[in-house]
Design a protein around this nucleic acid. Sequence first.
DNA 1: CGACAAACGGGATGGCCGTCCCGTATATTC
DNA 2: GAATATACGGGACGGCCATCCCGTTTGTCG
Lengths: 210, 210
Amino acid sequence: MVRERYGSAMADKPTATDADGRKPGRALRADARRNRARVLQVAAEIFATEGLSVPVHEIARRAGVGTGTVSRHFPTKEELFAAILLDRMEHLSGQADALAEGHDAGTAFFTFFATLVHEGAQHRGLAEALAGAGYDVETAAAEAGHDVPGRLRTMLARAQESGAVRADITYPDVKALMAGCLSREVDDAHGDALIRLVTVVCEGLRARPS
Amino acid sequence: MVRERYGSAMADKPTATDADGRKPGRALRADARRNRARVLQVAAEIFATEGLSVPVHEIARRAGVGTGTVSRHFPTKEELFAAILLDRMEHLSGQADALAEGHDAGTAFFTFFATLVHEGAQHRGLAEALAGAGYDVETAAAEAGHDVPGRLRTMLARAQESGAVRADITYPDVKALMAGCLSREVDDAHGDALIRLVTVVCEGLRARPS
DNA sequence: CGACAAACGGGATGGCCGTCCCGTATATTC
DNA sequence: GAATATACGGGACGGCCATCCCGTTTGTCG
């Protein structure tokens, strides 16, 4: 059987000392900011391609920093997970705003839907692990101003008003369809299969000229 | 953050000594057979409700056996996972055969579809973990004579021939829809939400009188 | 019923990983 | 350019868990 870890133990009561959610005091030192971003990026890639069980030491090694640096920025592995997701949410809500501005309602919605599916294909496990731990990513993101679901909901409504999307579709329908595209059945997250699925779903959502 | 383990480390190269896949020699002693079945059942329940990271010791404790007994029957945790899934597959293919015999093609298909979704809701993580480890459950099950996908495929074909299911549906479509029903969005695996989703999907699959 | 092998129990072992700590290096500030 | 707090590196610690081992129990067969 292929080499694979399932996960790894985690402290029950992490002694949360500093979540880098620092509002007060000084700003982060320049190198600290760089390192933090680098860890976040490397960790996102590694977790996406190799699973959540990759040791934090390994993340640090590949990011070219010491383990202490990682755990100072993200006191627990769980907080690292959350930070990655929040970071992605920030990107996504930025993209959403750009799309909403530069395209007609239909195009914006369909494009954003596809973006979300591809993003989801990358970080599937992450979101599940945090959800399983009772961490509500969407709410946390919304509080940080990166309300991706809200934006999707708005885009859906506009697309429907403009006649690009069937009027009988609801937001939960869209979420379920998205989840369907993300099923394990679609093996490779980058492959054609995913693109085909998204295409099919979008076609299904599109309002028929009738 | 709520107490939650993500998983647990596992040996890279399990010294596979005995997989209980014993064809030759003596049959299992009566008590051994009992214990094996009991562990399998208890483990399936626990993994389904509490996640895959529950320690093997805990499984043994709750099954009322020693850890040695568990690891003799299932040398590694991974083999325990696989055994559970194979066991479920056996149940399922039995149900499939019974359904195919006792009902019309349409009812058989829809009922089995619902059964699969509910089963999937239980053992979601299990299948994912094994798939991630490169273990092909479906093939293994097929080799053991419990070819669930094959049966579903057959039932779909018959249901389509009989006019109960839309003719333009393909088997992969069905798998994707099934996966959609199993999305994390449907929180409680026993709740009404899942039943509603299944109902909707089945209605969608049903051939319209036109 | 007695003898033997199969199976059991659960403690011991080894390894892995998250987290903490502290001496060192470096960005920032005056 | 010096002083100082901030951040870094990576080794060490502690805990957890899968697996193994071996003395003991129990089913099986003659």
